[in-house]
């Protein structure tokens, strides 16, 4: 029950793992801002990675990092609003991330077979 104890330290958690937790209480804006700050920073780091790294696999990892950032923001808002909508969308997010990862990795394999390289700059067929 260590996790449960840990959760108890939070202020006003809604529906903890233990049914006997404290009643749901509002989360303050400043606390929300903590989580959103983490989400924003993660997102921007992911974006920077996507823009600067040239390895296709790392680029896709960076997109997944951005997904994670979005997930953190969604869950934080879900908690803030005391409902489950944000979590519901996180389910969608994980689904899409999984699908994206599958497709992206299949593409990476395909592309790697063609050029024996993971360098994104090798692929300039989109040239206008």
């Amino acid at each position: 029950m260590a996790i449960g104890d840990m959760m108890m330290m939070g202020s006003g958690l809604m529906g903890s793992v233990l049914a006997q937790a404290a009643p749901p209480a509002a989360m303050s804006d400043v606390h929300l801002a903590h989580y959103l700050f983490v989400a924003c920073v993660m997102f921007v780091i992911g974006l920077i990675g996507f823009l600067t790294r040239r390895n296709l696999i790392i680029m896709f990892l960076c997109t997944d990092l951005m997904f994670q950032a979005a997930g953190v923001a969604l869950i934080a808002f879900s908690r803030y609003h005391l409902n489950h909508t944000g979590e519901t969308f996180t389910i969608v997010l994980i689904t899409v991330a999984a699908a994206e990862a599958a497709m992206a990795l299949a593409l990476v394999v395909l592309l790697f077979r063609k050029k024996e390289s993971l360098d994104a700059e090798e692929w300039t067929e989109l040239k206008g």
């Binding site: 793992v17 997944d64 997930g71 953190v72 979590e87 996180t90 991330a97």
Partner: peptide, 27 residues
């Protein structure tokens, strides 16, 4: 962990299972 302290246990575990367990292994 952040999900857990945001009282979203299901998503926390789902994340670990799906992401860390499945997707990352594929990667």
């Amino acid at each position: 962990g952040l999900f857990l302290i945001l009282a979203s246990e299901f998503m926390a575990f789902a994340l670990v299972i799906v992401y860390a367990g499945a997707i990352l292994i594929t990667y």
